[in-house]
Amino acid sequence: MDNQTRLCLEVKGLSKRFGGQQVLREVSFSLQEGEILGIIGPNGAGKTTLFNIISGWVTPSGGEVVFFGEKTTDWTPDRLCRAGMARTFQMPQIFPEMSVLENVMTGAWFGQPSPPAAAQARAQSREFLELVALTASETTPARDLSLMQQRLLELARALATRPKLLLLDEIAAGLSLKAVKCLTNLILRLRTQGLTLLLTDHLLNLIMPVSDRLLALDQGEIIAAGPPQEIIHDPEVESAYLGVRDPAGEEG
């Protein structure tokens, strides 16, 4: 790989309306390869909608998404996955009747640009399960996992598609401090392998230590962008979190 880092993702002037509600307003930012960008914002700020547009689930009302130089605004999510974009959902999306290993194997078998043999996909899946340190046995049906375990499973499955860009939507919500610590280490380790990450959180415990840059979103608009320490002391961000419009601490 050359020294010159490439642009991984460019988001140019994204807007989205749902009926009469403007959920995103002219959102633009870009992401270098190997970078970790955190998006913060209160509930309803439009973080999930932004992810849905980037990953091809929702068509924007305006603007475009460029992924490694290609305009992907109208690509389908499965095509984006095979091109190297993976994501997790706020509510984990698992295959309930499949075992833990089978869940991850689905990612390894279908999500990679060139599909491996079944045995190889299975071997790779075990590696990823180890990487995320999921405590459940690999034969457990996924529906029997706790919410936290389902999140880790979804993460392992996303990694098994060998993404270049990984989008994590509120992956730390409801996790214990210890689990957040593990996840922090894991994410930092993934970065050393060249993965680019985009993550959201409306709390800050995971996103602060791992992000290179933060982007604060409020009511569909970027209100601040920059290094994490600067952003959280930004008065506008503070008022978005603590101010009258959206009382903080409603969730916890």
């Binding site: 993976a86 295959f95 009747e97 499949m98 689905t106 279908f110 999500g111 990679q112 598609t161």
Partner: peptide
Amino acid sequence: RALRENETAATMMGIR
């Protein structure tokens, strides 16, 4: 089987 169990997840795994 994957798309039968969860279509969103199957799509996310690159299945058409």
